[in-house]
Design a protein around this nucleic acid. Structure first.
Lengths: 247, 247
DNA sequence: TCCAAATATTGATCTGTATCAAGGAAGCCC
DNA sequence: GGGCTTCCTTGATACAGATCAATATTTGGA
Protein backbone atom coordinates (compact mmCIF):
# COMPACT_ATOMS: atom_id res chain seq x y z
CA UNK A 1 0.00 0.00 0.00
CA UNK A 2 0.89 3.67 -0.15
CA UNK A 3 2.29 2.84 -3.50
CA UNK A 4 1.63 4.78 -6.64
CA UNK A 5 1.59 1.58 -8.59
CA UNK A 6 -1.58 0.63 -6.79
CA UNK A 7 -3.64 3.63 -7.74
CA UNK A 8 -6.43 3.25 -10.21
CA UNK A 9 -5.64 4.91 -13.51
CA UNK A 10 -8.23 7.25 -14.91
CA UNK A 11 -9.25 4.96 -17.76
CA UNK A 12 -10.70 2.10 -15.76
CA UNK A 13 -13.11 3.60 -13.30
CA UNK A 14 -15.26 0.51 -13.73
CA UNK A 15 -12.84 -2.00 -12.27
CA UNK A 16 -9.27 -0.89 -11.72
CA UNK A 17 -8.45 -4.37 -10.59
CA UNK A 18 -8.38 -6.13 -13.89
CA UNK A 19 -5.92 -3.62 -15.22
CA UNK A 20 -3.59 -3.20 -12.34
CA UNK A 21 -3.88 -5.08 -9.12
CA UNK A 22 -3.99 -8.61 -10.36
CA UNK A 23 -3.66 -9.03 -14.05
CA UNK A 24 -1.73 -6.17 -15.59
CA UNK A 25 -0.28 -8.64 -18.04
CA UNK A 26 -3.27 -10.90 -18.65
CA UNK A 27 -4.42 -11.64 -22.16
CA UNK A 28 -8.06 -11.61 -23.22
CA UNK A 29 -8.53 -15.27 -22.47
CA UNK A 30 -7.18 -14.94 -18.96
CA UNK A 31 -9.29 -11.86 -18.32
CA UNK A 32 -12.35 -13.79 -19.37
CA UNK A 33 -11.50 -16.52 -16.88
CA UNK A 34 -11.10 -13.93 -14.13
CA UNK A 35 -14.42 -12.35 -15.07
CA UNK A 36 -16.09 -15.67 -14.51
CA UNK A 37 -15.04 -15.91 -10.88
CA UNK A 38 -15.43 -12.25 -10.11
CA UNK A 39 -18.28 -10.33 -8.51
CA UNK A 40 -18.78 -7.00 -6.80
CA UNK A 41 -19.87 -6.22 -3.27
CA UNK A 42 -20.69 -2.92 -1.59
CA UNK A 43 -20.30 -2.09 2.07
CA UNK A 44 -21.30 1.02 3.94
CA UNK A 45 -19.08 3.03 6.25
CA UNK A 46 -18.57 1.36 9.60
CA UNK A 47 -19.54 -2.08 8.37
CA UNK A 48 -17.22 -4.98 9.10
CA UNK A 49 -16.34 -6.90 5.94
CA UNK A 50 -14.88 -9.85 7.80
CA UNK A 51 -13.78 -10.84 11.27
CA UNK A 52 -10.39 -12.21 12.17
CA UNK A 53 -10.72 -15.99 12.09
CA UNK A 54 -13.66 -16.03 9.69
CA UNK A 55 -13.53 -18.39 6.77
CA UNK A 56 -12.95 -16.37 3.65
CA UNK A 57 -14.88 -17.29 0.57
CA UNK A 58 -12.99 -14.83 -1.56
CA UNK A 59 -9.95 -12.69 -2.08
CA UNK A 60 -10.63 -9.15 -3.21
CA UNK A 61 -9.40 -5.80 -4.41
CA UNK A 62 -10.73 -2.42 -3.37
CA UNK A 63 -12.48 -0.61 -6.20
CA UNK A 64 -13.41 2.50 -4.23
CA UNK A 65 -13.42 3.68 -0.63
CA UNK A 66 -11.15 2.99 2.31
CA UNK A 67 -11.06 -0.03 4.63
CA UNK A 68 -8.94 -0.80 7.69
CA UNK A 69 -7.24 -4.00 8.83
CA UNK A 70 -7.24 -4.20 12.62
CA UNK A 71 -6.07 -6.49 15.38
CA UNK A 72 -7.64 -6.38 18.81
CA UNK A 73 -6.53 -7.64 22.22
CA UNK A 74 -8.91 -9.29 24.66
CA UNK A 75 -9.23 -6.13 26.72
CA UNK A 76 -10.19 -4.07 23.69
CA UNK A 77 -6.92 -2.40 22.80
CA UNK A 78 -6.95 -2.06 19.04
CA UNK A 79 -4.23 -1.57 16.48
CA UNK A 80 -4.79 -0.87 12.82
CA UNK A 81 -2.22 -2.93 10.92
CA UNK A 82 -3.01 -1.80 7.43
CA UNK A 83 -5.14 0.53 5.42
CA UNK A 84 -6.77 -0.59 2.18
CA UNK A 85 -6.95 2.07 -0.50
CA UNK A 86 -8.40 1.68 -3.99
CA UNK A 87 -6.66 -1.13 -5.84
CA UNK A 88 -5.16 -2.71 -2.71
CA UNK A 89 -5.57 -6.44 -2.39
CA UNK A 90 -6.89 -8.34 0.60
CA UNK A 91 -6.92 -12.04 1.33
CA UNK A 92 -4.37 -14.75 1.51
CA UNK A 93 -4.28 -17.40 -1.16
CA UNK A 94 -3.64 -20.75 0.46
CA UNK A 95 -5.15 -19.88 3.79
CA UNK A 96 -8.86 -19.89 4.42
CA UNK A 97 -9.06 -18.03 7.75
CA UNK A 98 -8.83 -14.26 7.75
CA UNK A 99 -5.92 -13.03 9.86
CA UNK A 100 -7.40 -9.61 10.59
CA UNK A 101 -10.69 -7.89 11.01
CA UNK A 102 -11.51 -5.72 7.99
CA UNK A 103 -13.76 -2.70 8.49
CA UNK A 104 -15.00 -0.14 5.99
CA UNK A 105 -14.10 3.37 7.14
CA UNK A 106 -15.98 4.92 4.22
CA UNK A 107 -18.44 3.36 1.81
CA UNK A 108 -16.54 0.67 -0.04
CA UNK A 109 -16.90 -1.33 -3.24
CA UNK A 110 -14.88 -4.51 -3.47
CA UNK A 111 -14.10 -6.65 -6.48
CA UNK A 112 -14.14 -10.21 -5.16
CA UNK A 113 -12.77 -13.40 -6.66
CA UNK A 114 -13.98 -16.75 -5.41
CA UNK A 115 -11.05 -18.17 -3.49
CA UNK A 116 -10.71 -21.71 -4.80
CA UNK A 117 -10.83 -20.90 -8.50
CA UNK A 118 -8.56 -17.93 -7.89
CA UNK A 119 -5.97 -20.18 -6.31
CA UNK A 120 -6.20 -22.51 -9.30
CA UNK A 121 -5.64 -19.58 -11.57
CA UNK A 122 -2.58 -18.59 -9.54
CA UNK A 123 -1.04 -21.98 -10.19
CA UNK A 124 -1.65 -21.88 -13.90
CA UNK A 125 -0.92 -18.21 -14.52
CA UNK A 126 2.59 -17.35 -13.28
CA UNK A 127 2.42 -13.65 -13.98
CA UNK A 128 -0.60 -13.26 -11.71
CA UNK A 129 1.35 -14.99 -8.92
CA UNK A 130 4.25 -12.77 -9.76
CA UNK A 131 2.19 -9.61 -9.54
CA UNK A 132 0.83 -10.79 -6.21
CA UNK A 133 4.35 -11.35 -4.90
CA UNK A 134 5.27 -7.83 -5.96
CA UNK A 135 2.25 -6.38 -4.19
CA UNK A 136 2.90 -8.39 -1.05
CA UNK A 137 6.50 -7.21 -0.94
CA UNK A 138 5.24 -3.62 -1.24
CA UNK A 139 2.91 -4.20 1.68
CA UNK A 140 5.70 -5.73 3.72
CA UNK A 141 7.81 -2.64 3.09
CA UNK A 142 4.90 -0.42 4.11
CA UNK A 143 4.29 -2.45 7.27
CA UNK A 144 7.95 -2.21 8.23
CA UNK A 145 8.07 1.48 7.54
CA UNK A 146 5.11 1.78 9.85
CA UNK A 147 6.95 -0.16 12.56
CA UNK A 148 9.45 2.70 12.71
CA UNK A 149 6.57 5.15 13.09
CA UNK A 150 4.96 3.11 15.87
CA UNK A 151 8.13 2.29 17.74
CA UNK A 152 10.16 5.45 17.58
CA UNK A 153 8.23 8.53 16.55
CA UNK A 154 6.61 11.12 18.81
CA UNK A 155 2.89 11.83 18.65
CA UNK A 156 3.43 14.89 16.49
CA UNK A 157 5.69 13.00 14.10
CA UNK A 158 3.18 10.17 13.90
CA UNK A 159 0.36 12.50 12.91
CA UNK A 160 2.56 14.24 10.37
CA UNK A 161 3.58 10.86 8.92
CA UNK A 162 -0.02 9.81 8.46
CA UNK A 163 -1.02 13.13 6.91
CA UNK A 164 1.95 12.92 4.56
CA UNK A 165 0.85 9.52 3.31
CA UNK A 166 -2.69 10.70 2.73
CA UNK A 167 -1.58 13.95 1.10
CA UNK A 168 0.64 12.13 -1.36
CA UNK A 169 -1.94 9.53 -2.16
CA UNK A 170 -4.57 12.13 -2.85
CA UNK A 171 -2.24 14.24 -4.92
CA UNK A 172 -1.46 11.19 -7.01
CA UNK A 173 -5.12 10.33 -7.42
CA UNK A 174 -6.04 13.86 -8.39
CA UNK A 175 -3.09 13.92 -10.76
CA UNK A 176 -2.40 17.51 -9.82
CA UNK A 177 1.20 16.49 -9.82
CA UNK A 178 3.81 18.49 -8.07
CA UNK A 179 1.60 21.38 -6.95
CA UNK A 180 2.91 22.61 -3.64
CA UNK A 181 -0.50 22.92 -2.03
CA UNK A 182 -2.28 19.68 -1.30
CA UNK A 183 -5.81 19.47 -0.10
CA UNK A 184 -7.73 16.34 0.78
CA UNK A 185 -10.46 14.83 2.92
CA UNK A 186 -9.45 12.73 5.88
CA UNK A 187 -11.06 9.33 5.39
CA UNK A 188 -10.53 8.48 9.07
CA UNK A 189 -12.11 9.55 12.34
CA UNK A 190 -9.84 10.75 15.13
CA UNK A 191 -10.35 7.39 16.77
CA UNK A 192 -9.31 5.47 13.65
CA UNK A 193 -6.25 7.70 13.35
CA UNK A 194 -5.43 6.92 16.98
CA UNK A 195 -5.74 3.19 16.30
CA UNK A 196 -3.45 3.49 13.34
CA UNK A 197 -0.86 5.49 15.25
CA UNK A 198 -0.91 3.75 18.62
CA UNK A 199 -2.24 6.86 20.37
CA UNK A 200 -5.44 7.94 22.10
CA UNK A 201 -7.99 10.00 20.25
CA UNK A 202 -7.41 12.92 22.62
CA UNK A 203 -3.73 13.02 21.76
CA UNK A 204 -4.57 12.89 18.05
CA UNK A 205 -6.94 15.81 18.48
CA UNK A 206 -4.40 17.84 20.43
CA UNK A 207 -1.64 17.25 17.89
CA UNK A 208 -3.94 18.11 14.99
CA UNK A 209 -4.72 21.37 16.77
CA UNK A 210 -1.04 22.00 17.37
CA UNK A 211 -0.12 21.41 13.71
CA UNK A 212 -2.93 23.75 12.73
CA UNK A 213 -1.81 26.41 15.23
CA UNK A 214 1.74 26.15 13.86
CA UNK A 215 0.57 26.54 10.28
CA UNK A 216 1.72 23.11 9.12
CA UNK A 217 -1.83 22.29 8.06
CA UNK A 218 -5.04 24.25 7.55
CA UNK A 219 -8.20 22.60 8.83
CA UNK A 220 -11.65 23.44 7.49
CA UNK A 221 -14.28 21.64 9.45
CA UNK A 222 -12.94 18.46 10.98
CA UNK A 223 -12.09 16.51 7.90
CA UNK A 224 -10.81 18.82 5.24
CA UNK A 225 -7.05 19.26 5.36
CA UNK A 226 -4.87 21.57 3.33
CA UNK A 227 -1.10 21.21 3.36
CA UNK A 228 0.42 24.51 2.28
CA UNK A 229 3.97 23.17 2.25
CA UNK A 230 4.59 19.47 1.79
CA UNK A 231 8.29 19.79 2.56
CA UNK A 232 7.44 21.29 5.91
CA UNK A 233 5.06 18.43 6.66
CA UNK A 234 7.65 15.81 5.74
CA UNK A 235 10.08 17.61 7.99
CA UNK A 236 7.63 17.37 10.87
CA UNK A 237 7.27 13.65 10.13
CA UNK A 238 10.98 13.19 10.70
CA UNK A 239 11.34 11.50 7.32
CA UNK A 240 14.64 11.67 5.54
CA UNK A 241 13.39 13.84 2.71
CA UNK A 242 11.38 11.44 0.55
CA UNK A 243 9.90 8.83 2.83
CA UNK A 244 10.68 6.04 0.43
CA UNK A 245 7.93 6.78 -2.08
CA UNK A 246 8.58 7.47 -5.72
CA UNK A 247 7.18 10.79 -6.82
CA UNK B 1 9.32 -15.38 10.23
CA UNK B 2 8.78 -16.93 13.64
CA UNK B 3 7.26 -19.74 11.72
CA UNK B 4 7.90 -23.39 12.34
CA UNK B 5 7.85 -24.01 8.65
CA UNK B 6 11.03 -22.04 8.34
CA UNK B 7 13.14 -24.01 10.76
CA UNK B 8 15.89 -26.17 9.45
CA UNK B 9 15.03 -29.84 9.75
CA UNK B 10 17.62 -32.06 11.36
CA UNK B 11 18.64 -33.75 8.13
CA UNK B 12 20.01 -30.76 6.27
CA UNK B 13 22.41 -29.01 8.58
CA UNK B 14 24.58 -28.28 5.57
CA UNK B 15 22.15 -26.06 3.73
CA UNK B 16 18.60 -25.89 4.98
CA UNK B 17 17.76 -23.58 2.13
CA UNK B 18 17.65 -25.99 -0.70
CA UNK B 19 15.22 -28.19 1.13
CA UNK B 20 12.89 -25.68 2.66
CA UNK B 21 13.21 -21.99 2.14
CA UNK B 22 13.24 -21.82 -1.59
CA UNK B 23 12.87 -25.07 -3.38
CA UNK B 24 10.93 -27.55 -1.30
CA UNK B 25 9.44 -28.86 -4.52
CA UNK B 26 12.39 -28.57 -6.86
CA UNK B 27 13.50 -31.54 -8.92
CA UNK B 28 17.14 -32.56 -9.33
CA UNK B 29 17.57 -30.48 -12.43
CA UNK B 30 16.27 -27.34 -10.79
CA UNK B 31 18.40 -27.92 -7.72
CA UNK B 32 21.44 -28.19 -9.94
CA UNK B 33 20.58 -24.84 -11.50
CA UNK B 34 20.25 -23.29 -8.06
CA UNK B 35 23.58 -24.77 -7.00
CA UNK B 36 25.22 -23.00 -9.90
CA UNK B 37 24.21 -19.56 -8.73
CA UNK B 38 24.67 -20.22 -5.05
CA UNK B 39 27.56 -19.48 -2.70
CA UNK B 40 28.11 -19.16 1.03
CA UNK B 41 29.25 -16.19 3.07
CA UNK B 42 30.11 -15.90 6.76
CA UNK B 43 29.77 -12.82 8.91
CA UNK B 44 30.84 -12.27 12.48
CA UNK B 45 28.66 -10.85 15.25
CA UNK B 46 28.17 -7.12 14.96
CA UNK B 47 29.09 -6.97 11.29
CA UNK B 48 26.75 -5.19 8.89
CA UNK B 49 25.82 -7.41 5.95
CA UNK B 50 24.35 -4.58 3.93
CA UNK B 51 23.29 -0.97 4.34
CA UNK B 52 19.90 0.41 3.44
CA UNK B 53 20.19 1.74 -0.09
CA UNK B 54 23.11 -0.49 -1.08
CA UNK B 55 22.91 -2.30 -4.35
CA UNK B 56 22.31 -5.95 -3.63
CA UNK B 57 24.20 -8.47 -5.67
CA UNK B 58 22.30 -11.36 -4.17
CA UNK B 59 19.27 -12.61 -2.34
CA UNK B 60 19.97 -15.00 0.50
CA UNK B 61 18.76 -17.35 3.19
CA UNK B 62 20.15 -17.66 6.68
CA UNK B 63 21.89 -20.99 7.29
CA UNK B 64 22.85 -20.32 10.90
CA UNK B 65 22.92 -17.43 13.33
CA UNK B 66 20.69 -14.42 13.85
CA UNK B 67 20.59 -11.16 11.92
CA UNK B 68 18.49 -8.02 12.37
CA UNK B 69 16.78 -5.77 9.84
CA UNK B 70 16.83 -2.18 11.07
CA UNK B 71 15.67 1.25 9.99
CA UNK B 72 17.28 4.39 11.35
CA UNK B 73 16.20 8.03 11.47
CA UNK B 74 18.59 10.90 10.83
CA UNK B 75 18.94 11.62 14.53
CA UNK B 76 19.88 8.04 15.29
CA UNK B 77 16.62 6.61 16.56
CA UNK B 78 16.62 2.99 15.46
CA UNK B 79 13.86 0.45 14.98
CA UNK B 80 14.40 -3.20 14.27
CA UNK B 81 11.80 -4.19 11.67
CA UNK B 82 12.55 -7.85 11.42
CA UNK B 83 14.71 -10.59 12.80
CA UNK B 84 16.26 -13.18 10.54
CA UNK B 85 16.46 -16.67 11.99
CA UNK B 86 17.87 -19.76 10.30
CA UNK B 87 16.08 -20.42 7.02
CA UNK B 88 14.59 -16.92 6.75
CA UNK B 89 14.95 -15.23 3.40
CA UNK B 90 16.27 -11.75 2.74
CA UNK B 91 16.26 -9.71 -0.41
CA UNK B 92 13.72 -8.50 -2.83
CA UNK B 93 13.59 -9.97 -6.29
CA UNK B 94 12.91 -7.19 -8.76
CA UNK B 95 14.48 -4.43 -6.72
CA UNK B 96 18.18 -3.87 -6.56
CA UNK B 97 18.45 -1.48 -3.60
CA UNK B 98 18.25 -2.91 -0.08
CA UNK B 99 15.38 -1.40 1.88
CA UNK B 100 16.91 -2.01 5.30
CA UNK B 101 20.23 -2.30 7.01
CA UNK B 102 21.02 -5.92 7.88
CA UNK B 103 23.31 -6.59 10.83
CA UNK B 104 24.55 -9.88 12.26
CA UNK B 105 23.69 -10.13 15.96
CA UNK B 106 25.55 -13.42 16.27
CA UNK B 107 27.97 -15.09 13.88
CA UNK B 108 26.01 -15.78 10.72
CA UNK B 109 26.32 -17.99 7.67
CA UNK B 110 24.27 -17.01 4.65
CA UNK B 111 23.43 -18.97 1.55
CA UNK B 112 23.44 -16.42 -1.26
CA UNK B 113 22.02 -16.59 -4.77
CA UNK B 114 23.21 -14.17 -7.41
CA UNK B 115 20.28 -11.85 -7.97
CA UNK B 116 19.91 -11.71 -11.72
CA UNK B 117 19.97 -15.45 -12.38
CA UNK B 118 17.74 -15.99 -9.38
CA UNK B 119 15.14 -13.66 -10.85
CA UNK B 120 15.33 -15.54 -14.11
CA UNK B 121 14.76 -18.75 -12.26
CA UNK B 122 11.74 -17.23 -10.55
CA UNK B 123 10.16 -16.52 -13.90
CA UNK B 124 10.74 -20.00 -15.25
CA UNK B 125 10.02 -21.95 -12.06
CA UNK B 126 6.54 -21.13 -10.77
CA UNK B 127 6.74 -23.18 -7.59
CA UNK B 128 9.79 -21.25 -6.43
CA UNK B 129 7.87 -18.01 -6.94
CA UNK B 130 4.97 -19.61 -5.15
CA UNK B 131 7.06 -20.61 -2.19
CA UNK B 132 8.46 -17.11 -2.02
CA UNK B 133 4.95 -15.66 -1.99
CA UNK B 134 4.05 -17.96 0.87
CA UNK B 135 7.12 -16.89 2.85
CA UNK B 136 6.48 -13.23 2.16
CA UNK B 137 2.90 -13.55 3.37
CA UNK B 138 4.19 -15.18 6.56
CA UNK B 139 6.54 -12.29 7.09
CA UNK B 140 3.78 -9.80 6.46
CA UNK B 141 1.68 -11.52 9.13
CA UNK B 142 4.61 -11.43 11.54
CA UNK B 143 5.24 -7.75 10.82
CA UNK B 144 1.59 -6.91 11.45
CA UNK B 145 1.50 -8.92 14.62
CA UNK B 146 4.49 -6.90 15.71
CA UNK B 147 2.66 -3.66 14.93
CA UNK B 148 0.18 -4.56 17.68
CA UNK B 149 3.08 -5.14 20.06
CA UNK B 150 4.71 -1.81 19.19
CA UNK B 151 1.55 0.25 19.15
CA UNK B 152 -0.46 -1.06 22.05
CA UNK B 153 1.48 -3.19 24.52
CA UNK B 154 3.13 -2.06 27.75
CA UNK B 155 6.87 -2.46 28.30
CA UNK B 156 6.33 -5.61 30.36
CA UNK B 157 4.05 -7.13 27.72
CA UNK B 158 6.53 -6.26 25.00
CA UNK B 159 9.36 -8.06 26.77
CA UNK B 160 7.16 -11.06 27.46
CA UNK B 161 6.09 -11.14 23.80
CA UNK B 162 9.67 -11.19 22.61
CA UNK B 163 10.69 -13.87 25.10
CA UNK B 164 7.70 -15.96 24.08
CA UNK B 165 8.76 -15.86 20.44
CA UNK B 166 12.31 -16.86 21.29
CA UNK B 167 11.22 -19.57 23.72
CA UNK B 168 8.98 -21.18 21.16
CA UNK B 169 11.52 -20.96 18.40
CA UNK B 170 14.17 -22.57 20.53
CA UNK B 171 11.84 -25.26 21.75
CA UNK B 172 11.00 -26.06 18.15
CA UNK B 173 14.66 -26.14 17.16
CA UNK B 174 15.62 -28.37 20.08
CA UNK B 175 12.64 -30.55 19.27
CA UNK B 176 11.99 -31.02 22.98
CA UNK B 177 8.38 -30.61 22.06
CA UNK B 178 5.82 -29.73 24.64
CA UNK B 179 8.06 -29.78 27.69
CA UNK B 180 6.79 -27.15 30.08
CA UNK B 181 10.22 -25.78 30.91
CA UNK B 182 11.98 -23.93 28.15
CA UNK B 183 15.51 -22.75 28.36
CA UNK B 184 17.39 -20.78 25.76
CA UNK B 185 20.13 -18.24 25.11
CA UNK B 186 19.11 -14.71 24.26
CA UNK B 187 20.71 -13.93 20.89
CA UNK B 188 20.17 -10.19 21.48
CA UNK B 189 21.80 -7.55 23.67
CA UNK B 190 19.55 -5.40 25.86
CA UNK B 191 20.04 -2.63 23.34
CA UNK B 192 18.97 -4.82 20.41
CA UNK B 193 15.93 -5.91 22.41
CA UNK B 194 15.13 -2.24 23.04
CA UNK B 195 15.42 -1.49 19.33
CA UNK B 196 13.09 -4.34 18.53
CA UNK B 197 10.54 -3.29 21.11
CA UNK B 198 10.61 0.48 20.75
CA UNK B 199 11.97 0.97 24.27
CA UNK B 200 15.19 2.15 25.89
CA UNK B 201 17.73 -0.38 27.08
CA UNK B 202 17.22 0.76 30.68
CA UNK B 203 13.53 -0.06 30.49
CA UNK B 204 14.34 -3.46 29.00
CA UNK B 205 16.74 -4.17 31.84
CA UNK B 206 14.22 -3.10 34.48
CA UNK B 207 11.44 -5.21 33.01
CA UNK B 208 13.72 -8.22 32.72
CA UNK B 209 14.55 -7.80 36.39
CA UNK B 210 10.87 -7.45 37.24
CA UNK B 211 9.93 -10.62 35.34
CA UNK B 212 12.75 -12.41 37.13
CA UNK B 213 11.66 -11.10 40.54
CA UNK B 214 8.09 -12.24 39.81
CA UNK B 215 9.24 -15.73 38.85
CA UNK B 216 8.07 -15.52 35.23
CA UNK B 217 11.61 -16.19 34.05
CA UNK B 218 14.83 -17.40 35.63
CA UNK B 219 18.00 -15.62 34.54
CA UNK B 220 21.43 -17.20 34.77
CA UNK B 221 24.05 -14.70 33.78
CA UNK B 222 22.65 -12.12 31.41
CA UNK B 223 21.84 -14.25 28.46
CA UNK B 224 20.54 -17.58 29.65
CA UNK B 225 16.79 -17.60 30.16
CA UNK B 226 14.61 -20.35 31.60
CA UNK B 227 10.84 -20.16 31.30
CA UNK B 228 9.32 -22.37 34.00
CA UNK B 229 5.77 -21.89 32.77
CA UNK B 230 5.13 -20.95 29.17
CA UNK B 231 1.43 -20.34 29.77
CA UNK B 232 2.31 -17.79 32.40
CA UNK B 233 4.67 -16.04 30.01
CA UNK B 234 2.04 -15.91 27.27
CA UNK B 235 -0.34 -14.48 29.78
CA UNK B 236 2.11 -11.72 30.61
CA UNK B 237 2.45 -11.05 26.88
CA UNK B 238 -1.28 -10.34 26.70
CA UNK B 239 -1.67 -12.84 23.88
CA UNK B 240 -4.96 -14.56 23.42
CA UNK B 241 -3.69 -18.02 24.33
CA UNK B 242 -1.69 -19.12 21.30
CA UNK B 243 -0.21 -16.01 19.76
CA UNK B 244 -1.01 -17.17 16.26
CA UNK B 245 1.72 -19.76 15.97
CA UNK B 246 1.06 -23.40 15.20
CA UNK B 247 2.45 -25.73 17.82
C1' DT C 1 46.12 -12.45 35.57
C1' DC C 2 45.01 -8.10 35.30
C1' DC C 3 43.13 -4.15 32.78
C1' DA C 4 40.08 -1.90 29.58
C1' DA C 5 35.98 -1.97 27.05
C1' DA C 6 31.56 -3.50 26.49
C1' DT C 7 27.38 -4.72 28.54
C1' DA C 8 24.00 -4.68 32.19
C1' DT C 9 21.79 -3.05 36.48
C1' DT C 10 19.79 0.22 39.50
C1' DG C 11 18.47 4.85 41.27
C1' DA C 12 16.55 9.70 40.90
C1' DT C 13 14.08 12.68 38.31
C1' DC C 14 11.63 14.50 34.29
C1' DT C 15 8.23 14.50 30.60
C1' DG C 16 5.08 13.00 26.91
C1' DT C 17 1.12 10.78 26.55
C1' DA C 18 -2.81 8.50 28.87
C1' DT C 19 -6.67 9.09 31.62
C1' DC C 20 -10.59 11.37 33.54
C1' DA C 21 -13.84 14.97 32.79
C1' DA C 22 -16.60 18.60 30.73
C1' DG C 23 -18.36 20.98 26.99
C1' DG C 24 -18.94 22.20 21.83
C1' DA C 25 -20.01 21.45 16.80
C1' DA C 26 -22.05 18.85 13.20
C1' DG C 27 -25.09 15.54 11.34
C1' DC C 28 -29.65 13.21 11.23
C1' DC C 29 -34.16 11.70 12.32
C1' DC C 30 -38.80 12.86 13.69
C1' DG D 1 -36.35 23.33 13.75
C1' DG D 2 -35.57 20.93 18.13
C1' DG D 3 -33.31 17.31 20.18
C1' DC D 4 -30.63 13.08 19.72
C1' DT D 5 -26.35 11.07 18.77
C1' DT D 6 -21.83 10.94 17.14
C1' DC D 7 -17.59 13.09 16.72
C1' DC D 8 -14.32 16.40 18.25
C1' DT D 9 -11.90 19.72 21.31
C1' DT D 10 -9.87 21.31 25.45
C1' DG D 11 -8.47 21.21 30.39
C1' DA D 12 -6.60 19.04 34.75
C1' DT D 13 -4.11 15.42 36.56
C1' DA D 14 -1.64 10.87 36.80
C1' DC D 15 1.72 7.71 35.46
C1' DA D 16 4.70 4.73 32.39
C1' DG D 17 8.69 5.04 30.40
C1' DA D 18 12.58 8.28 29.04
C1' DT D 19 16.57 10.52 30.51
C1' DC D 20 20.57 11.40 33.27
C1' DA D 21 23.85 9.35 36.28
C1' DA D 22 26.49 6.10 38.90
C1' DT D 23 28.01 1.46 39.65
C1' DA D 24 28.43 -3.54 38.77
C1' DT D 25 29.42 -7.45 35.92
C1' DT D 26 31.25 -9.84 32.05
C1' DT D 27 34.33 -10.34 28.24
C1' DG D 28 38.42 -10.27 25.73
C1' DG D 29 43.06 -9.06 24.92
C1' DA D 30 47.92 -8.10 26.22
Amino acid sequence: MNDLRKLAPADCSDCPIRHRAVCARCDADELARLDEIKYYRSFSAGQTLMWAGDTMEFVASVVSGVAALTQTMEDGRTQMVGILLPSDFVGRPGRSAAAYTVTATTDVVMCCFRRKPFEQMLLSTPHVAHRLLEMTLDELDAAREWMLVLGRKTAREKIASLLAILARRDAALAKDGSGQTRRFDLPLTREAMADYLGLTLETVSRQMSALKRDGVIILEGKRNVTVPDLERLLDEAGDDSDGGLPS
